[in-house]
Nucleic acid binder design. Structure first.
Lengths: 130, 130
DNA sequence: ATTTGTTTACGAAGATATTCGTATATTCAT
DNA sequence: ATGAATATACGAATATCTTCGTAAACAAAT
């Protein structure tokens, strides 16, 4: 009951989540100063976004001190999975492996990364054989 | 010059593109009847969307007969790549292999698909060794 | 030729996302 | 305590996306 399914963050919200995942709990100003480096928006814009995200349950905040501290309330992994699943569904017609082939084809991956992927594939196949 | 970089289709636009990729050039009504199966929207909504997509250059149309025939003006592959690249960038911090691992982890892939992926990995590694 | 049905064109309402101006509250240094 | 700096709260303007009502154009059947 009341599973509280996570709702999809918007573009701007994702930018904020990325900062918080990276830097951990932060003030609006801290987040804003990071965002300013790549885009230009006013301080109150960032503030408003983070307030909305808090209402939506995407962020939690500690309001005990005057300057509130915000933290991501959703995990990076869950969010990645959620967005990825949706993309597989709506863009790749449900075929995860088709997406994988595209991803591998168009991006340089290091030898180590490729090895990791291969190992993972072997594991999956072992599982399947059982 | 005027490279005409493809702009990102919206959610609804993607639904329409998927129909056209699948069925080839079609009338608004044909597209609409497919969409109706999964969502409910009026006919003129579909029409309007397709007209806008035409203006944007996402669709081309043959208006020689009374009933116009629309076709995708962007390829499925290019669009997939575009959206995938963006996701790798904004959701997976630029790491394609991290996305691949997530995708493989959370989705059942057939043995054949996994084999195909492994072959592909081997090829990539061969290339790298040269 | 008139009716009936289907199509496109147009404009605008509704919904959601983004942006920011301004007011109010709080803190801190003087 | 007063002023300067910084924070939050609130409301609204703007932009974008989605939806649909209505009118005009056209085609086919009667």
């Amino acid at each position: 009951m009341s599973a509280g399914k996570q709702l999809k963050p918007t573009e701007s919200e994702l930018e904020i989540l990325r900062v918080l995942w990276e830097k951990g709990p932060s003030t609006v100003r801290e987040v804003h100063e990071i965002l300013e480096q790549s885009k230009d928006a006013g301080y109150t814009t960032t503030l408003k976004l983070m307030q909305i995200m808090h209402e939506k349950g995407l962020l939690q905040r500690d309001a005990s001190s005057k300057t509130h501290i915000y933290a991501a309330a959703v995990s990076q992994e869950n969010t990645q999975r959620q967005l990825l699943d949706k993309m597989i569904d709506t863009v790749f017609n449900g075929s995860a492996s088709q997406l994988v082939l595209q991803a591998l084809g168009n991006h340089k991956s290091s030898k180590e990364e490729l090895e990791k992927i291969k190992e993972y594939l072997n594991e999956i196949e072992k599982q399947q054989r059982k």
